[in-house]
């Protein structure tokens, strides 16, 4: 069970999060993340077979909205905050690779 997080793991996660980390930062975060995971392992050591997983801290379900149209933004307002717009659309730099 006890698998220590490696420097490579941290580099991988940083890449996924589009974070550019320097070598010394990788060392720092590897140590910090290892400490966080160790803490989680303390919990994992307990016998929790009868405890259901908690996905949410509040005991609520079914907070729903009726299927009724509400106000929309005008295209002008919507595009106002876009760094670049063209032809009623958001203009973005060249996309590398297909959509996931």
């Amino acid at each position: 069970m006890s698998v220590r997080i490696t420097r490579d793991d941290v580099a991988h996660v940083a890449t996924l999060a589009r974070l550019s980390l320097a070598d010394d930062e990788l060392d720092t975060f590897t140590a910090q993340l290892a400490a966080v995971l160790e803490h989680a392992e303390d919990v994992a050591a307990l016998d929790l077979a009868d405890v259901p997983p908690t996905s949410h801290p509040v005991p609520l379900v079914n907070v729903l909205r009726p299927d009724v149209p509400g106000p929309t933004l005008s295209p002008e307002d919507a595009l106002a905050a876009a760094p670049q717009a063209e032809d009623g659309r958001f203009r973005v730099p060249t996309i590398l690779g297909e959509a996931p």
């Binding site: 919507a78 063209e86 032809d87 659309r89 958001f90 203009r91 973005v92 730099p93 060249t94």
Partner: peptide, 9 residues
Amino acid sequence: GADHSLVDY
């Protein structure tokens, strides 16, 4: 080879 892309949400 595209120059840029346009997005409609």
